[in-house]
Design a protein around this nucleic acid. Structure first.
Lengths: 154, 154
DNA sequence: ATCAAAATCATACTAAAGTATGAGGTTAAT
DNA sequence: ATTAACCTCATACTTTAGTATGATTTTGAT
């Protein structure tokens, strides 16, 4: 059953051919009677098979597809923080200094930063002072502001 | 000339038809000699016109267009700060408190904020304390952090 | 191995930030 | 006119931040 469904085009084509050949056979007899109708007969045949060809073509060939790609702009919320490595290099902030700066940006107190990084309060003070020097600021709030502007922290 | 180019398919079809009819005429003569070749002749005719039909179909049908919409991510620098008025209302920050908060976010010291807003240092301290209360934080850095997260300052 | 930069921590100090409380003055709504 | 919220400022105090200086230790590069 599935075979029939799958190959129905081929079967149909075969059947059509058979039917047409029979028709031709009948017309063959007609030709004896009305002799000069041959051109009409041939024309009809041509038309029929042309139609069959067209139909076949449509059935059997998958349609041509012109794929039109339309680019739709999707606004992506710029979490896209691109670290400004040039600035970072220029400023010469060390790893630890960056960590302290980041913690400051998170709103932590020096005490809390010390706890986070397992360092003493004094060490944090030293580091933050260095950060301020390098960023040429006086306060942690300014440091965070500037660091954000320079894209060295998110 | 343009007419020829535009309708070349039709012209070709017509020409093919003419050629085939001539072929048939020739074959008609052949039929007299080899009589039972008629089935072969018909079969050939059928095949030819089927092929013609297929060719015609392919030429004449315009291709289907599959429009594929590709979502392309476009990075838009979200300067687009949308003030979260809901949060602002919920927190109940006053005008002055907002001004102080903004100045804090700009990295100013309380002294500088006082100068900017023509207020005394003590007034700024009062305001900032209120801001901290309302934002439920202890330090200015945390206040700025939270305010930014809540989208009440850029 | 040596040298410089980085990292750690301390002490001592100053400056700024933050808290608590109270007291007038202004303004807008009832 | 009264009330409540807001704004202003002050004093007194505590806490945190920031500066200056110096010492010791790690670490990476020559």
């Amino acid at each position: 059953m599935k075979f029939i469904i799958r190959n129905r085009s081929i079967i149909l084509y075969g059947t059509s051919l058979a039917v047409l050949l029979l028709t031709m056979k009948w017309l063959e007899w007609r030709l004896v009677v009305i002799d000069h109708a041959f051109e009409l007969y041939a024309g009809a045949l041509a038309l029929m098979f042309t139609a069959l060809g067209i139909w076949l073509s449509r059935k059997l060939t998958q349609p041509k597809t012109n794929t039109i790609i339309v680019e739709k702009e999707v606004v992506v919320d710029t979490k896209d923080f691109i670290l400004n490595e040039a600035e970072l290099a220029r400023l010469g902030l060390t790893k630890r200094e960056m960590e302290v700066l980041q913690a400051m940006a998170d709103g932590l107190s020096n005490q809390q930063i010390g706890e986070r990084l397992f360092l003493s309060l004094n060490t944090i003070k030293t580091h933050s002072s260095k950060v301020f020097e390098k960023l040429e600021v006086q306060r942690r709030t300014q440091a965070v502001e500037k660091a954000r502007k320079l894209k060295i922290i998110p």
